[in-house]
Design a protein around this nucleic acid. Sequence first.
DNA 1: GTCTATACAGCGATAGAC
DNA 2: GTCTATCGCTGTATAGAC
Lengths: 208, 208
Amino acid sequence: MSPRSAGRSAILPMTHTGPVRSSSAERVLDVAENLVAQRGFNAVSYADIAAQLGVSKPALHYHFAGKGDLGSALITRYASRFGAALTALDAAGTAPQTRLEGYAALYLAVLEEDRMCLCGMLAAEYRTLPTPMQDAVRDFFAANEAWLCTVLRDGRADGTLQFHGSPPDTAAMIIGCLEGAMLVARPFHDTARFKAAADNLLAGLTAA
Amino acid sequence: MSPRSAGRSAILPMTHTGPVRSSSAERVLDVAENLVAQRGFNAVSYADIAAQLGVSKPALHYHFAGKGDLGSALITRYASRFGAALTALDAAGTAPQTRLEGYAALYLAVLEEDRMCLCGMLAAEYRTLPTPMQDAVRDFFAANEAWLCTVLRDGRADGTLQFHGSPPDTAAMIIGCLEGAMLVARPFHDTARFKAAADNLLAGLTAA
DNA sequence: GTCTATACAGCGATAGAC
DNA sequence: GTCTATCGCTGTATAGAC
């Protein structure tokens, strides 16, 4: 495995499906996504991205006219990659509990790269984002919640999952718990802290 | 109730104990805390704070030499206020479940002012903060976790609370769930979303 | 304790050559 | 598609008067 493909899979673990066309724009997004997920959208500059790529700032403007355009593209790509990962978890007749574990594992994978969930980060900065980015962040969470609802309903139907509230309310709790556990784990540089919270969450949802 | 005291109680609900000495430095912190909790530390400038106070930028530098000093003071004051609120919840022989509900209510009060938890916001920006601020953020969460552990142990001892993991692991899940539910609720401008997640969380911890 | 004035670095963005 | 050069603005911070 070449250094580059190792680097890519570290950044894009959810859809790494073999031979990847890595256009200049894609490489910009790769670097930007990594920086934004670590430091936040407002703390990342064109200069930062250009420096890591070894190009000049105007080269970035050629691909993304304004910073807001770059940000929107970032979310779009992240959301579609995340969505593909969720679809993959639905394959065959995977048990609801297994799908839930897979969902938590997606978050853990991000945290282990010392990154925050891109949309969790952007949710914190929400009030300072351009409107298109705000809408895209909201859509991301809505899609996650919808997917979780189907898993929860399946699990309640076949008796493998148990929970007190409605599926949407429980889905909101699951997303919140995982995003928040990531958020709090990072200051402690402690992935075990996240795992403990996630395991605890799943244990509470598993039928005895 | 004067407009000013109304404003103060909206910003400082946790320790509003009557006649308040409102030195210039305190007023700077009031405005800064509100702005940072809404927009993030990196998205708030001396100019923003000075404008809301109706003073000049150098006036702020007189009270807080650098932005890092202001940020550290912000966390210190927030943490001590939060700590006092937790101590208040321990009064008399309050039931563990009631203390837990009170804890969640503290978060809800912040969200209803359309703010993020100050330290939750700073956790997102963690990688970009000066070291003293990073340490203070970590201490805040550690203190919260310690307090929750005592509540959880009390509740397990008297049989009013039930949970699968250890008290520290469960405490990490509770903090994560509440911080994350706030984080995700803000893009939806929807406090009901937070309440649902919090109620769901507490229901899972309450002994049947 | 607050002001005016200013220094200086960094930001996003554009013009125009290649 | 990428470069050099540069613009206008905003950021934190300081000097010195009052």
